[in-house]
Design a protein around this nucleic acid. Structure first.
Lengths: 343, 343
DNA sequence: AAAGTTTACTAAACTATTTTAGGTGCTTCA
DNA sequence: TGAAGCACCTAAAATAGTTTAGTAAACTTT
């Protein structure tokens, strides 16, 4: 079962490789190839079930029709859904997707960027960047390599990015808690707070307090370490609840934190929303069926992928577009469920 | 920012491309290249940050270091987790993964197989096959192309496969429902029941009934269409519950069905497990925090990916191994939660 | 009827790597 | 002193496409 090549097609018709190649690349007209020949060649190609070898084509043209996607962990449903949206768009344009997980490790991320670009020769990258890797992206930008950051970006560095409006949607989530009667709203967030999403959500929290005329209290914000969410959340929550002035609501900066809150509250024999109201960022399936159902900020996940892909394609096809940077900020929607009801 | 090639390295050292290539491919010893030269070359390679072009290498050697993964939908957390396990193993061996979603469409699947094989020149495939595409895999087997089916396989066709013990674990799930007091256990499954997993789960259901001496009733098995799970489940459940002899337990053949049951029961104002006990196949996050927590058969997801990858690598590296077929059947674990408690 | 134009096609170069089949110059030994 | 052996290295082919720079033959024009 030898692989069929251009040459096989050409030989079996007694024509040159050039001819077949030109026809397959839709350059028949512009090279004055007779419609008759075009038909003959196309028929043969179909008959022999020929498919061009991407490696050979890529080698000659530099076009691999590959794009790379780097996320923290593809088994995280949030990224899995983004990946799917990107895959669909890519395949529509005959591009193929290579997905890699960085595990939030800047070094692994940098290595992945290099491997995808230099070894696999991807034509563009979509990346949900880790904490601290601006240099890598500065380099990419400098050599005008097409890429788009999603979900997170760097405050002091401008490049293509598609993110959600973390500030405003967090603000409205916290406002909603206050409106539903909460007097002391705490914020649970994660400790590498220089990830843009997290600091922005914190900012939204502060804005909502300010707007409501509630003074900000340092003690009501806690950054728990990524590595030990469960225990840290438990301890934090216990502290907050047995304080002189116990909290009556908590805003969780991501879904993992919210799940930990659910677990803790159930462990402590308390009830949401009666003993504590809560809203989470990131609407995952769990929240719809949890007890009680959890209010959450739902990100337009598929849109993130789609918009990123559009920008990337534009960058790939239009050199000039690489000089500027496109910043897309998508709105997120607050889905209200029982965890934040006004009792 | 021109790409650095072998030739650049060679020229900058005044040696031949051959030399550099041999050294980089660890063939220095066998070609009697002096250790001195090896050092000089390796140093330069590092200094110039050189990385071989995979397209050129693949073209010459036929080795692309690519493997393809075809699943129904990568945004499904089950497949996302498998994909992650595969990715990790692949990268460890310097292989790269190309993930595609078939949307359960046999034609799309066949096309993906072709594109991945002929165009992308992947060295092997891991596939969670759709309903009815045996011919595609028969062809692959015939030309001894390395591939492994996961999650599902075809009853009358033998090829590498890694699946879970659907029959036995379904049987024990249903047995558990009966043991906990259920008298009339129904089965909710999906309509293309010739997907091996589904028919096996149905078989397990029947075995459990038989074992308990409960006669099988056609009416207590319903295959709902994939396209309209929500409504169909609702209607079916209502039928079952208002029958002369209402059911008191249901075994769901997958997590989507179970989620639909949760929704319906909540819509109807009923309570699990008091009005209806349930167990699902496929343990997803939702079930841990749902109200009530749902008992489920947990598949060893990462193992599936890992084992498949091991078999695939073996096939890729050892031609002889392609003649036989390896069948791996992994055990699944029943996780008991409140949805099936004995009241 | 020579020159120019058009039509329909092709030979060969090129891409970056691996691999085959040597080649060079030194030492060793008869 | 000339052949053999050895240690080290290289030229060129090969891979499967695309692209450049044509060419041959037929047809048109003057």
């Amino acid at each position: 079962m030898k692989k069929i090549t251009l040459e096989d097609i050409a030989k079996s018709l007694g024509v040159s490789k050039t001819l077949v190649s030109l026809i397959l690349n839709n350059k028949a007209k512009e090279h004055g190839i007779s419609p008759d020949t075009v038909d003959r060649v196309l028929k043969k190609v179909k008959e022999m079930n020929y498919m061009p070898n991407q490696a050979a084509r890529g080698l000659r043209t530099g076009k691999t029709n590959l794009i790379g996607l780097i996320v923290a962990d593809i088994s995280n449903p949030f990224y899995a859904r983004i990946s799917r949206a990107i895959e669909d768009l890519a395949w529509k344009k005959d591009y193929h997707l290579m997905v890699c997980s960085s595990d939030e490790d800047p070094e692994k991320e940098a290595q992945l960027v290099r491997i995808l670009r230099e070894k696999m020769q991807v034509e563009g990258l979509i990346i949900s960047p880790t904490t601290d890797n601006v240099e890598v992206f500065r380099d990419l930008k400098k050599i005008e390599f097409p890429f788009v950051l999603i979900d997170r970006n760097y405050p002091k560095f401008s490049c293509n990015s598609v993110v959600v409006d973390n500030i405003r949607s967090s603000q409205s989530a916290v406002k909603h808690l206050i409106d539903s009667g909460a007097k002391r709203v705490a914020l649970l967030t994660l400790s590498p707070a220089h990830i843009s999403t997290l600091s922005e959500r914190q900012e939204g929290y502060k804005l909502a307090l300010k707007e409501a005329g509630i003074p900000f209290e340092e003690d009501l914000v806690r950054e728990v370490p990524f590595s030990d969410i469960k225990n840290s959340v438990k301890k934090t929550l216990q502290d907050w609840l047995k304080a002189k002035q116990p909290i009556d609501a908590v805003f969780c900066a991501n879904n993992h934190l919210a799940v930990a809150v659910l677990e803790t509250i159930s462990d402590l024999g308390l009830r949401i929303p009666y003993d504590l109201r809560m809203v989470s960022f990131d609407d995952v399936d769990v929240f719809k069926f949890s007890y009680p159902p959890v209010s959450a900020v739902a990100q337009p996940i598929e849109d993130i992928g789609t918009r990123a892909m559009e920008i990337l394609f534009n960058n790939i096809n239009d050199r000039a577009s690489r000089e500027s940077a496109e910043h897309v900020v998508l709105p997120a929607e607050l889905v209200i469920r029982r965890s934040s009801s006004s009792l």
